[in-house]
């Protein structure tokens, strides 16, 4: 993640050059900061869409919520300790993801325990924020906002490339474990009977979710990454029951929300990028929910019409 000064410069740049909503796409693509945002954003959205689909399928959305709190605390702990923010981000989320996977096997903890624990983790993040604020002289209100709500327009060329490479690596991992993971998610007992290493896959997958959370928080921030994981995946699940189609659809919807959000935020500089991305992802889910309800109703009506015909015959 770049310094806050870089982010502010880019912001001013954006305001100046985005003359109006009708500035051409080619004009937009000419800005280096847009290119970096698109590179990192596309990779991160693709990853979030894929991982999010499994998260929703496995009913582990709470883990996404938990990891978003951990991401905040981890990033600020790293800032307070004076190391690279991403180091704290990845270390905290991957370790907690693994721990959740290893502990979660023995019965699900109840929501009160999870909620109380992770509220405290967030409180710890605020503690690190104060530590960072009191022990360094830089302007770090901006750093806090960047961790909470992301700063994709402030990402540097090097950071964008790193984020894209990490995302690409994680996508390969997800695709490699995709088949057994799908099997294990849909029917764990049959999968383990067939020799799928279910006990190994669970923690491994949650570690991947942790790394994804760290990636996504660079784009939309620790508070909103949960939405980027959940919304496209939930939309895809509304639209199809086919797992592989759903997986592709989820990734596609996430990338669409990312591209649309970046364009919207570029065209209307008053909109923060993470808000635009999240708003589009939410809209996608809303439309998918409406479409699936309408579809289901039509199917039900089609099924309902023959009933009166068959009813008398069964009665008679």
């Amino acid at each position: 993640m770049t310094s806050s000064i870089g982010a502010l410069n880019n912001l001013a740049d954006r305001r100046l050059l985005a003359g109006g909503p009708l500035t051409g796409i080619s004009n937009m693509l000419g800005h280096p900061f847009i290119q970096h945002a698109l590179l990192a954003g596309t990779a991160i959205a693709l990853l979030s869409g894929l991982v999010g689909y499994f998260v929703v399928l496995r009913g582990q959305v709470f883990a996404g919520d938990a990891l978003s709190h951990v991401a905040y605390a981890g990033a600020l702990a790293a800032l307070a300790a004076g190391v690279d923010l991403r180091f704290g981000l990845f270390a905290a989320t991957v370790v907690v993801g693994l721990a959740l996977g290893l502990l979660g096997g023995r019965g699900a903890a109840d929501d009160v325990v999870i909620g109380t624990t992770f509220a405290w983790v967030l409180g710890l993040g605020v503690f690190f924020l104060t530590l960072y604020t009191t022990h360094s002289s830089t302007d770090n209100g901006a750093a806090n906002v960047n961790v909470l709500f992301g700063s994709i327009f402030g990402i540097s060329a090097g950071d964008a490339a790193t984020a894209a490479w990490i995302a690409a690596g994680l996508i390969v991992v997800v695709l490699l474990i995709g088949r057994p993971l799908l099997f294990a998610s849909l029917d764990p007992s049959v999968a383990s009977a067939r020799g799928v290493p279910v006990r190994l896959l669970g923690p491994l997958f949650l570690a991947v979710v942790g790394a994804t959370a760290a990636e996504a928080s660079q784009a939309v921030g620790a508070l909103l990454l949960f939405g980027l994981l959940a919304a496209p995946a939930a939309a895809a699940q509304r639209l199809t029951d086919q797992p592989w189609t759903g997986l592709a659809l989820s990734a596609g919807l996430a990338v669409t929300a990312m591209w649309g959000g970046l364009t919207l935020a570029y065209a209307a500089p008053k909109l923060p990028a993470s808000f635009a991305i999240m708003a589009l992802a939410t809209a996608e889910f809303g439309l998918a929910a409406l479409a699936s309800t309408a579809l289901r109703r039509r199917v039900r009506r089609r099924h309902a019409t023959p009933l009166p015909v068959t009813a008398p015959t069964t009665a008679g």
Binding site: G59, F62, D111, L228, A233, A234, Q237, A281
Partner: peptide
């Protein structure tokens, strides 16, 4: 957020939005 995928995904989306 009982852990059922759909419902908790909806709650998560609403919160993030």
């Amino acid at each position: 957020l009982g852990g059922y995928g759909e419902e908790s995904a909806v709650i998560g989306t609403v919160q993030a939005f």
